[in-house]
Design a protein around this nucleic acid. Structure first.
Lengths: 128, 128
DNA sequence: CACATTAGTTCCCTTTTGGGTACTATAATA
DNA sequence: TATTATAGTACCCAAAAGGGAACTAATGTG
């Protein structure tokens, strides 16, 4: 399965975009887009998890969607999928070496989110 | 317009999630989800831009989608919108103080994307 | 008067995402 | 022998997100 190339010449850091005429930011967007991917990566950054563990941490995701998102992350080589040949089935998901490089970014995002909640939700509750 | 609260108790760093019973990661996901938001924030991190400037940097986005995404980022207080009362219209978009706190994250994402392209695209071209 | 310009909006259509239910395999358990 | 458990898949339908093209407002220019 051939990956789609993403050309992008307007990147304001294109001189740092190495030898590819592709904006790295667009690549990141492709990887991380999707309603559950950031959350999945975040949970896996702590430790590998079974399918059912991830599902229980994401109460609103359906089995079908979770499978889809996991497959997509696997295709992008962000996570691995390890099947244990047991009954009932056991499948473990975890970050690849490449995926682990996202951890500091995820941690900063978490920090930002926390700060955001403080600023924005406090602002709202004081207005109400 | 009341923002939607996002409850989430399974966050593996919930003890650091301050006083809100809301996973910050989910909040971040809400803010940066959307096909163009990360790119828009990235471009604005360099300098404020006019609507038409952003559009020209995102050749594949339609006017409607760009407007939508900008409105959404504005609602989340990540960017500001400044209308100049001139003809033809001039509207400037830029990061808010809160939005500027995303810059280091965006820069790391860019770095990750660049690294990803090197590893994954080189791997592919050597297989082909 | 016609045209260009900018930042939109509106309408309609397609694609993606999501939701529900049913179905599968296999071994252990009751 | 029927049930349970896990990690899915298949199918069908509804909702949301996204895309394309046409339209608008207001003024300056030819």
């Amino acid at each position: 399965m051939k990956k789609q190339l993403i050309k992008h010449e307007q990147c304001h850091m294109r001189d740092k975009c190495l030898k590819y005429d592709i904006c790295p930011m667009l690549q990141v967007q492709k990887i991380v887009a999707g309603k559950w991917k950031i959350l999945i990566l975040w949970y896996l950054s702590y430790s590998p998890l079974r399918f059912s563990d991830i599902k229980s941490k994401l109460p609103d995701v359906t089995q079908k969607m979770l499978t889809q998102q996991l497959r997509s992350l696997e295709e992008d080589n962000m996570i691995y999928r390890k099947v244990y040949p047991v009954v009932p089935p056991k499948v473990e998901y975890g970050l690849t070496d490449l995926g682990k490089k996202l951890i500091p970014i995820l941690e900063m995002m978490h920090g930002f989110g926390a700060e955001y909640l403080v600023q924005e939700l406090d602002k709202e509750s004081s207005v109400d």
